[in-house]
Nucleic acid binder design. Sequence first.
DNA 1: CTCACACTTCGTCATCCATCGAAGTGTGCA
DNA 2: TGCACACTTCGATGGATGACGAAGTGTGAG
Lengths: 122, 122
Amino acid sequence: MQELLNIARALSDPSRVRILMFLRGRELCLCQIIEMLGLASSTVSRHMSLLCQAGLVRVRRNGRWRHFRLPGAGAPPRVCKCLRWLEEALAGDAAVARDGRRLKSVMKVPMEVLCGNGRKER
Amino acid sequence: MQELLNIARALSDPSRVRILMFLRGRELCLCQIIEMLGLASSTVSRHMSLLCQAGLVRVRRNGRWRHFRLPGAGAPPRVCKCLRWLEEALAGDAAVARDGRRLKSVMKVPMEVLCGNGRKER
DNA sequence: CTCACACTTCGTCATCCATCGAAGTGTGCA
DNA sequence: TGCACACTTCGATGGATGACGAAGTGTGAG
C-alpha cells in the first residue's frame, strides 16, 4: 500500500501533475521544467525527486544536466495504469492545453539560454 | 484538474484507501467503518466527507444512520477508472487481505451492538 | 416535548509539506 | 587548481492535514 500512497501523494500537487503532463511523449531538461513552472529551482528539484521516488518519472544524468521522462513499458503496471488514468482524466483540460502550447515555445528556446539567462529572468 | 487533485488527495491517506477497499462490492454503515478503523467517529466522519466530495463514495441516509458505497456505473469515467486502478494496484496487498478477513467478522456483529456498545469499547 | 442516539462541525495540537533563499555538492573547462 | 554552472540539500516559514474531544445538529421514540 505504501507504493500506492506514494503515487497518490505525488499526484496531490498541481505542479507535479503539470510536470507529468509536460513529459508526455518527450524528455525534458530540468531547466525547461523550471521555466514552465516559474518556481525556484530548489522547489522543482524537490518535486522531481518525489516523482522519481514514486516511480512516475525517470531521470537521465548528463554531466551537470538532468533530463526527465516518463517511465516506459517496463515500469510496474500500477505506474503505467496510473499515468494512463491521469492522461485520460485530464484530456480536454484547459490548463493542460495552455501548458502544452507554452511548452512548444519553451522548447524552441536553446537550452543554453534557459540554463544561463533563464535563472536571471525568473 | 481540480477534480483530479481532489481524488489524488483523497487517496493520499491510508485510512481512506482502506475505506475504499472495505466498500468493494458492499455497502457499509458508518459504525462499521468506525469499528474497522478504530478511529474517533469525528475523524471517520471527516474522512467520509472527503471521499464523498471527491466523488469516490456515495452516501445513503437512513434516519440517523449513514450507509456508504462505491459509486456505480453512472459515475464519471475518471472515478470509475481510478477505483479500478486502486483495486488492481492493491491486489495481493497483505494489509488489505487482513482487513478483508476482519471485515467479515465485523459484518457479523449486529449493528445495534456496534452503534451502541461499539463506542464504549473504542 | 424531552431525551437518547448517530452523526457533523469546531477548536486545538502535532506533524507534514510547498516554497524560498542559502549553503553544499558535483561537473566541466581553462 | 580555481571558477562557473547545474543541481541538491538544508533551514525557515506559513499553510494544510489527521487526530482527538467538545460542542452542535438532526432523527426517532416515548
